[in-house]
Every structure is written in structure tokens, then in C-alpha cells.
Design a protein around this nucleic acid. Structure first.
Lengths: 210, 210
DNA sequence: TTCTTTCCTGACCATATGGTCAGACACGGA
DNA sequence: TCCGTGTCTGACCATATGGTCAGGAAAGAA
């Protein structure tokens, strides 16, 4: 039923095609990097002529920028799990769950983000300096409060955050390596659960919250 | 004295230039990715004419392949710290130190490796399936032995390894982000030490080895 | 000195790529 | 039905890039 070429309304057309292009772009950028990706390939994946991409997105960089920003939005939403938690077990535990789920559901976006930062964040440097910095400082304050309240050991909040980011993101960015070491097969539901539990157990135990 | 154009012996010339080119290539590949890197830019960084690069390395891919393999060698050497350790505190502690030091000293190599794996390891897939897989299985056995001997908690050795890789590598791959969150300045000696200590403390505590 | 081998490089080429544009087409309001 | 506006696209262009090559320079053996 979705394949039937039912006529789309004007407003739908734009939304639908942008979505199509952004989805294809995320995939191609993740697989080839910004430099290695070509508009032609993105067009092919999206099933549209190349000129059509340029109708919706003026340049390759515009398209890339949009992809990166969309991913950042997803991450910020996951970050909310940190708030309103009574203590580290709930807050950090939920955050790990949320970020692991993102690694599982949006591995391509994760890779695009990693690639962007690795190359010096040419496109989203302003985001790092504003939104991300603010968010980080806020979370550091929360963790520090938990420490002061005796709910966890006095670890350096900053490095704890880095460890959370690194570990959860690893399952997306290095998914191929993990898969190779898993006999070439993607992690099963059971294995994903084991991964989440392992991460949560080690970290929450490591910070003396359990 | 090093600048004096003293005549080089035949054998030296080759070695010297290959080193120069590989060093420039590592930097450029790290900054731009395989697709974004250009032979011209690598040549400029190396201070050699582009045609000269092709004299030593037939193709861009050959050059890239060599860079990736060289990095892998460094990593394997660091991995040795794991062996001959009486228990997790010494073995894993030393491994964390070694890998953090690599992240600090060879951030470019680290990024090239990450980039390669993220893009599906088109060049070093065979290494993943042979050398890396063997190494991993061996280390898992070691960890399992420590668990059986009661030297640490019964965590999943595989996910523990992933956590070690992820966390230590993060300081190289996401160095730019960390620097941005550190008021735009690289980590100082003191901060690197704090990072190492934090990682070691949280993980070793997390696996019940301390 | 002579000759062989290695090293070096400016000029060149085929191709791929990002981007443009004129004009066709279709939706939807009047 | 007509027209304005948004959508679509094949053909095209300027440029950048990986790679080639012929010929010259330098090293080292004889």
C-alpha cells in the first residue's frame, strides 16, 4: 500500500522528499565520510535524480550540516533522562540505556557525529561551544551534588561523562569490529541486553553507586 | 645541523622519504578521512612533489593501507602489557596506561584506525578476522581465569574489553571535543594523569579488583 | 671516467564530482 | 478552464583529483 503512487499534497511532497534525502545522506555519509560521499550516490540511494537533491539542499555541505544537526537533536533528547533522577543509579542507568539504544537504532547518525568531531568539528563547532558545553557543565553539577550527598564515590564527573559517552557510542561507531568479533553476526537482543547490563554494572559499581 | 643538505646514502633516502610521506599521510588521513584526503595535500605536508609520492607508493590506497597497518603494529605492542600480569590490577591497569599513552602520542593514527573501522574496515578486514580476533580470544581467556581465581567480579570479559578500548580511544578520537570542553586548551600533564587515574579507578573498582 | 641503477619531477591526461540551468510538468486556487 | 507557483530533471560546465610518463639528475659500481 505504501508503494502505490498515490498523489501527495504539496506540503507532503517537500517533507517526504527531504526525509528521503536526509535518510540516504545519513547512510552514505556514515559509510564513506563527508569527503568520500558523493551527491550522486546519495541520490541513487534515495532513488532520486541528483539535480533533485540540489533543489532541496543547495550544496553538499548544507545537506551534511542538516544531517549532523538532526543527530545532535536526538542526542539531546536522550540526555534528558539524566534529569529529575533522584540519584546516580537511576540517572546514569537510564542515560546508559538511552545512549545504548541510540547506538543500536541510529548507528549511522552516531558515525556521522563521530566523524565530524574527529575531523575537528568544522561544521558544528558552535554547537560544541554552546549547547554541548552548557549541557556538560549542568550534568557535572548534578553529579557533583550526588557526590556531596554521599550517593556515589568522589570521582571526577568530567571523566565519568567521557566514559559514558565513549562506551555507549563505541557500540555504534565500532559496530563493525564488534560484529566481526561476534562471528560476523550482529548482536542479538540477548547480547544487546548483556552489553547494557555489563556497562551499567561496571560503571555504577565503579563509582560506588550500587 | 639536521637542516644541512648532507648527502644521503641510497638506502637512507628511501627510508627517510617513506617516513616523511607516511607521517604526512597519517596526519592528512586523520584530518580529512580517506575520501577527503588528497595526494596533493599529503605531498604539500611532506614537502615533496606529488609525483614523488607515486614513486614510493603506487596508489593512494597503497599509502593508506600502509598507514593503517603501521598503526595496528603500535597497538599490538601496547597489548603486550596485558600479558604476564599476575592479576587484573596490574594487567588491566598497565593496559589502560599504555592505551591512554597511545591516545596522547598518536592521536592521528588512532583516528585513522577509528575511521577505517567505522567505514566497515575495507582495508584491514583480514586483520580483524585473524590477528585481532585471536588476540581478543586470548585476552578473554586471561580475564576469565582471573574471574575463576576470584581476583575480580564475574563480568563479561568481552564487554569489559570493549569498554577498555572505547574509553581509552575516546581521548584520541574525540580529543577535539574534549579540548573544546576544556576551554579550548589541550589537556595538561596533570589533566592527563587525572584522566588515567579516573579511568583506572572506575573500571578496576567496577570489576571488583580493588 | 663510464655505465647502470635509483631517484626525482614538470607536464600531462582521463575521469569524477559538485553544482547550474532552462525548460517541462503538476498541483491547486480563482 | 486558466494561471501562478512549486516541483522535477536531463544536459551541461568548470574544476579537482588520482595517476602516468618521458626525460633528467644523482649515486655508486666497475
Amino acid at each position: 500500500m505504501t508503494e502505490a503512487p498515490r498523489p501527495l499534497r504539496r506540503t507532503e511532497i517537500r517533507r517526504e522528499n527531504e526525509k528521503l534525502i536526509l535518510s540516504a545522506a545519513e547512510k552514505v555519509f556514515a559509510e564513506a565520510g563527508f569527503g568520500g560521499a558523493t551527491m550522486q550516490l546519495i541520490a541513487d540511494v534515495a532513488g532520486l535524480p541528483k539535480a533533485n537533491l540540489h533543489y532541496y539542499f543547495a550544496t553538499k555541505e548544507d545537506l551534511y550540516r542538516r544531517v549532523v544537526r538532526d543527530i545532535f537533536e536526538i542526542w539531546l533528547k536522550a540526555a534528558e533522562t539524566f534529569d529529575n533522577a533522584p540519584g546516580p543509579v537511576e540517572g546514569i542507568g537510564a542515560y546508559i540505556d538511552a545512549k545504548m539504544e541510540i547506538s543500536r537504532r541510529h548507528p549511522d547518525g552516531s558515525k556521522v557525529w563521530a566523524s565530524e568531531v574527529m575531523h575537528g568539528a568544522p561544521v558544528i563547532q558552535d554547537y560544541l561551544e554552546t549547547t554541548l558545553r552548557d549541557w556538560t557543565e549542568g550534568r557535572i553539577a548534578v553529579i557533583q551534588r550526588w557526590i556531596d550527598e554521599g550517593k556515589m564515590a568522589p570521582v571526577d564527573p568530567r571523566h565519568l561523562l567521557y566514559m559514558l559517552w565513549a562506551t555507549t557510542q563505541h557500540y555504534a561507531d565500532f559496530g563493525h569490529q564488534i560484529e566481526t568479533l561476534n562471528a560476523g553476526k550482529p548482536l542479538s537482543d540477548r547480547q544487546w541486553k548483556a552489553a547494557k547490563d555489563s556497562v551499567k554494572t561496571i560503571i555504577l559499581t565503579g563509582i560506588g553507586a550500587l
